[in-house]
Computed example of a mutant assay.
Amino acid sequence: MQISLKLLLLTASLSILSGEAIASEAIGINPTSKTPLFDGHCDKEEWQASTKIELPAQTAIYLMHDKESLFVCAKGKAEDYTAIDLYIEHAETGHLYNLHASAQLSERTLSDKDWSESAFWNHKDWSGYWVPYAGEEETDEGKRTKFLEGSHREVQVLRKKFVGNTWNMMIRLSAVYQDGEYGAEFFYPEKAADTEKSTWAKFFFSK
């Protein structure tokens, strides 16, 4: 009986420690009292309070929040277009959402095994600063649309869109210039997969 009691106490202690370890892995998103202006720049004073995550190729992710919104900014280099994808799990339904900002804004969901088709300019309860149009240029194949390099990608998500104070998320940066081309992309967490929410990171809204 004494042995069983000791085992139960040991198991309970390990469970508590395990729970604390999991909780400590969550990333706090710093609060802000200033709503940022979506102007393609996240290195201004209004973003100084943000939680910052450094990524390769001189890129970074800034996150902060107020009572109504999550604000995210993807910072790139002068040569980058810096597209961003936010992947967020809805804690009640279990559905996964992909909020995308590049030359257009789009949203898609994963509710079974496959992602839905991207619905462009379908951004209920969220918005973003897309890659600005920069005119046209002549090529051997005719005129081609140009987009502005060097702007940062800002996104605002209303917190009412996803329940709870802790969100399970993955972040993808793409259209980054590296090794002579724009094909570089980076993920946070580094080895996360868009269909495997267990590989994502927990973020909570700090007070």
Rank of each mutant, 00 (worst) to 15 (best):
Q2D: 07
K6R: 14
K6A: 05
L9D: 10
A12K: 03
A12S: 14
A12D: 07
S15A: 14
L17R: 13
L17D: 13
S18P: 00
S18C: 15
A23V: 00
A23D: 11
A23W: 03
A26I: 02
A26S: 10
G28A: 15
G28T: 00
P31C: 04
K34G: 02
T35N: 13
P36N: 00
P36H: 00
P36M: 03
D39S: 06
G40M: 01
H41G: 00
D43T: 14
D43Y: 04
K44W: 03
K44D: 12
E45V: 14
A49Y: 08
I53Q: 07
E54T: 12
P56I: 10
A60S: 03
S69W: 02
S69A: 10
V72I: 15
A74R: 13
G76L: 05
G76N: 08
Y81C: 02
T82Y: 04
I84P: 01
I84S: 10
D85N: 14
H90A: 06
G94N: 08
H95F: 03
L96K: 14
H100G: 09
L105H: 10
S106W: 07
E107C: 11
R108A: 03
S111T: 11
S116W: 00
S116T: 09
E117D: 15
N122M: 09
N122F: 02
K124M: 01
D125I: 01
W126L: 06
W126D: 01
Y133H: 07
G135T: 03
E136H: 09
E137F: 06
T139G: 15
D140C: 05
G142C: 02
K143C: 01
K143V: 06
K146A: 12
L148N: 02
L148K: 12
L148S: 13
G150V: 15
S151F: 03
R153L: 14
E154H: 07
G164R: 08
N165F: 08
N165G: 12
W167G: 00
N168E: 04
N168P: 05
A175I: 03
Y177T: 11
Y177H: 05
D179N: 15
G180P: 06
E181L: 15
G183C: 09
E185W: 09
F186C: 14
Y188W: 15
E190F: 04
K191L: 04
A192T: 07
D194N: 12
D194R: 10
W200I: 09
F204N: 10
F205G: 14
F205Q: 07
S206Y: 01
K207E: 04
